[in-house]
Design a protein around this nucleic acid. Structure first.
Length: 734
DNA sequence: GAGCACTGC
């Protein structure tokens, strides 16, 4: 296991893309290659100088010619309905552009400029900064709106929000009539929400134009010559209302603006130069057989041979992070005296937040921080002080098999865009270095960009949303990239079996419409609707909220026995669903008993303490409580019949069967289970309370392939209920 | 008897 600490000789950084073989290096691990041609270096430097004296955006129009951008950008927006802006990180596009547009009068008549972000934290932090820059209180002229947290008012004119939230808004206001401009930021990340939003906005833009020209009726009239490139809007007609044109701005960090430009009919694209410092890229000479070993060697090489600065290492998951951390600790004593000053710092999303915060603490003097991160550090979290990035070139990615209805997590090579994003993390404050642990020839073979999420996920929710927006032909919908046809068909089938769609594939009334209104997985929405009929709405509200979050139980390796004992207090022999209800109820009772007045911060503290004692993940529980409150509000608005089954869970279990019938599994002679819908052989996940019990028939909520095919969140049901409660799927032979 | 990247409504 032990790998000898490696000494390497220091090499002069090169410019101009020349390669050096590192003769004389016994390890021959690394080879230097600069990615920054001299001309670029010059440009970046000249801009840096300019930035010192002005906070304005810069636009690069012709080589070497710099314009102050405000006027120019506003002109571009005025003369183009759709504009693509390619801006590097640090260009200030997200904070500056909306202010320019506001000043240029785009908020006249009480209209709003909306800016979408893929992540909640980005929406909040950018809004705060812009409010500060404008010298206004947050929630006045500048505000943000994200799920569970709305900081806007009637006077808000610059509104930052998550893209998912804007999609929800479109359900209530299909023409997004309050917005004069919509800016889709970070479009290159291609999340499901961004992709659906782009398709929707393109449609809204067309429909608004048509509302002005009074040609709305043409869509419905077969006698009008519609020309070759005629594409009717799929939105519901706007019934004589007139809408001003919608300005669309797509902002992307990647260099392939072409995809977006082509999608929007050859829309104009402009580039904005950023403030990124140059990063030197280094590759290995040969492919590495064991990338974790290479990571270790490189960490020590950087530590022994490079100047001061913290190191960021990209790994694929918790297990790798913990293993590398152990190895670094084990081998540190072999380093020369005076060099045993590495401080390792893990960060991944399921790590409790107090421990995550360690990466932001200033490195004690005389130490070098080595941050071991998943791709949470790629976009979600920006860590200061990073000068060196070590990138083995792998990522754990979700993939989805529509045929089997199964998700799996697989380790795959990163894309070029991802590798670029990772290396950029070394150049945020000063010039840096990125060590890619593969040869340059391998880099050339990587995919240009990461496969858009919409091509590798379950589409049921997307399709339900589109149907609710009035898009009936989802297969024909103008996606920027079409998801696999099979995935669409399977999801349509799925929604039909849940009763959300009619035989004509239209949204059913009221079930389909109700399901679309609930911000939940369609199967969970269906469970809530069913629950009214089974007199257990209260219990089902808790259940779907708890099922909608990351795992509730937290079990650190070193305290797994204690965690197991703690979990037993909540366990119910009927299954995981009641067990989750127990956790929610006990936590709630504890809080009710402890609190005197309602004080949000104090409540949180009490909850965190309770969670720690009971090995419950406090972040997950808080999230579940938020979802519970939100969904309860929706259920009240929709006039659901509120009821509780108390401790008589028979009806609750029948309701589980009636809702999750597509996820039923039967026990086989050998103690394994067979999933009825797909015929796959599965096992009950060891974290389930039903693990090692012998129920004949169970329903489950998740089927995940890891080392085996596991079902998670499992409860016992009676086999006969399936034919009784879901005859559309389990027809009895006559 | 396992272990799961990251988001979002």
């Amino acid at each position: 296991m032990a790998s000898p600490p490696v000494t390497i000789q220091k090499q002069a950084p090169l410019r101009g893309g020349r390669k050096l073989s590192n003769r004389g290096d016994p390890c021959q691990l690394l080879q230097v290659l600069s990615c920054i041609p001299d001309i670029c270096l010059f440009l970046v430097l000249s801009i840096l100088v300019f930035f010192k004296s002005s906070s304005h955006l810069l636009i690069l129009c012709e080589p070497g010619v710099l314009f102050s951008v405000e006027k120019r950008l506003v002109e571009e927006v005025k003369s183009n309905d759709t504009l693509i802006i390619v801006g590097e990180t640090g260009s200030g596009k997200t904070t500056q552009l909306p202010q320019f547009l506001f000043d240029a009068g785009f908020c006249r008549d009480g209209k709003t400029i909306g800016i979408t972000q893929p992540r909640r934290v980005a929406a909040v932090t950018v809004a705060k900064r812009v409010a500060e820059e404008c010298g206004v209180g947050l929630g006045q002229k500048v505000g943000y709106s994200i799920r569970f947290d709305d900081m806007t008012s009637t006077s808000t004119r610059i509104k930052y929000m998550t893209d998912g939230l804007l999609l929800r808004e479109a359900l209530l206001d299909p023409y997004l009539s309050r917005y004069s401009v919509l800016v889709v930021d970070e479009a290159h990340e291609r999340t499901v929400h961004t992709d659906v939003l782009l398709g929707l906005l393109k449609d809204v833009q067309k429909a608004r134009l048509r509302s002005l020209s009074g040609k709305e009726s043409e869509d419905k009239n077969p006698n009008i010559n519609k020309g070759e490139d005629y594409q009717p809007s799929t939105l519901k007609p706007c019934q004589g209302r007139k809408f001003p044109p919608l300005k669309l701005i797509i902002m992307s960090a990647s260099l392939d603006a072409r995809v977006f430009s082509e999608y929007f009919g050859g829309a104009r694209a402009v580039h904005i130069q950023g403030r990124q410092h140059p990063v030197e890229i280094l590759y290995t000479l040969r492919p590495q057989t064991d990338y974790l070993e290479s990571v270790l060697v490189t960490i020590f090489q950087v530590h022994l041979n490079e100047g001061p600065g913290d190191v960021l290492v990209f790994l694929t998951g918790q297990e790798e992070i913990e293993s590398v951390e152990r190895s670094v600790q084990d081998q540190m004593p072999q380093l020369p005296e005076g060099s045993r000053n590495i401080l390792t710092c893990p960060i991944f999303s399921s790590l409790p937040s107090e421990q995550q915060m360690r990466v932001f603490a200033t490195t004690p003097s005389g130490f070098r921080k080595v941050i071991l991160a998943t791709n949470i550090a790629e976009t979600s979290v920006t860590i200061p002080g990073i000068k060196y990035v070590i990138d083995p070139g792998f990522v754990k990615a979700r993939s989805y098999d529509p045929n089997k209805g199964m998700e799996s997590l697989i380790i795959i090579p990163t894309s070029k865009a991802q590798a670029l994003q990772r290396s950029g993390r070394a150049g945020r404050e000063a010039p840096g270095k990125c060590f890619r642990l593969y040869p340059e020839s391998e880099f050339e073979k990587l995919e240009e960009s990461t496969k858009p999420e919409i091509k590798r996920c379950n589409l049921s929710n997307v399709i339900l949303q589109l149907k609710a927006l009035g898009v009936d032909d989802v297969i024909g919908f103008d996606f920027i990239e079409k998801p696999p046809r099979l995935a669409i068909v399977k999801s349509l089938e799925h929604l039909f079996l849940l009763g959300a769609l009619t035989d004509e594939c239209k949204l059913s009334n009221p079930v389909g419409h109700q399901m679309a209104r609930l911000p939940l997985d369609p199967m969970y929405s269906k469970a809530l609707i069913q629950a009214s009929n089974f007199n257990c709405l209260e219990e089902m509200l808790i259940t779907v909220a708890m099922l909608s979050v990351e795992s509730i139980f937290y079990s650190p390796r070193e305290k797994s026995e204690e965690a197991k004992t703690a979990m037993k207090c909540f366990a119910n022999p009927e299954g995981d669903h009641i067990t989750l209800i127990n956790v929610f109820r006990v936590a709630n009772e504890f809080l009710e008993k402890r609190r005197t007045v309602i004080n949000k911060e104090k409540d949180e503290k009490i909850m965190r303490k309770w969670c720690k004692q009971n090995f419950v993940n406090s972040r997950s529980l808080r999230h579940a409580r938020d979802i519970y409150r939100q969904i309860r509000g929706h259920a009240e608005q929709m006039g659901f019949h509120f009821s509780s089954c108390g401790d008589n869970f028979l009806q609750f279990h029948r309701c589980l069967a009636a809702s999750f019938f597509l996820n039923a599994a039967l026990r086989q002679p050998e103690g394994i289970y067979r999933a009825l819908a797909s015929g796959q052989v599965v096992r009950i996940h060891p974290s389930s309370v039903l693990n090692q019990t012998k129920a004949d028939c169970v329903i489950f909520n998740e089927l995940v392939q890891t080392s085996q095919k596991y079902i998670r969140n499992v409860s016992i049901i009676d086999y006969l209920w399936l034919t009784e409660l879901a005859p559309q799927f389990y027809m009895m032979p006559n």
